[in-house]
Write a protein that binds this DNA or RNA. Sequence first.
DNA 1: CCCTATGATTCCGT
DNA 2: ACGGAATCATAGGG
Length: 258
Amino acid sequence: VLSIRGAQEEEPPDAQLMRLDNMLLAEGVSGPEKGGGSAAAAAAAASAGVGPDNSAEHSDYRAKLTQIRQIYHTELEKYEQACNEFTTHVMNLLREQSRTRPISPKEIERMVGIIHRKFSSIQMQLKQSTCEAVMILRSRFLDARRKRRNFNKQATEILNEYFYSHLSNPYPSEEAKEELGKKCSITVSQVSNWFGNKRIRYKKNIGKFQEEANMYAAKTAVSAASVSAHGSQANSPSTPNSAGGYPSPCYQPDRRIQ
DNA sequence: CCCTATGATTCCGT
DNA sequence: ACGGAATCATAGGG
């Protein structure tokens, strides 16, 4: 009713609308019809983390995204159409009224402006809820926590061997991480995650890991012994244990119940 | 179904 | 950018 001067300037406060538009575009909802969407989704999946390109999950995600996109487009179209219809309807009414009373073009313009603002606020809502839906979808499918799989036994074996044989400084270098990742067929960041988790959990409850520590200490001791027995030089294979970081589990071969 | 183990993410300090 | 800590979400075993 009272926004006459706002009729011409509709831009200034709509930073949020910009954000919504940008996000919809980036997510492939409002952009190009088909190929763009999947490309954006793939990029999103790739950037979202470790994503070993699970195409089964991924196609599911894409299907849902397409669904969202279709809904969005049909709704948008519906709103647009409704807006136009309503506008022409109002125009007709005004035209009819102009027979009984004078109606300035300014008034018509004002009415049209009001209608358009109303409908664009509805569009805004639509965009917002679409964004929300996309975010939920993303968190549902792209969050790697939701499809966590344990590493296989051999991989954890290798990782544990490294951890317990470097217990004094269980911080593998970049190269070491790469090598471990290669041996375990996991990514470097997964190796980093594993060591991060292992360090904190070991430190938090050393007692719980005592048995495991002893086991791996024994295992590496055995392999070292066999190596030195086989080879000629008695080189302790990069195991200068018990320096600074974590308390050594101090292997006790015949630790029994009292 | 509950509980623990575990991989991944987030927050924060450095 | 990396590591510690807390937390999330699922896997796995009883």
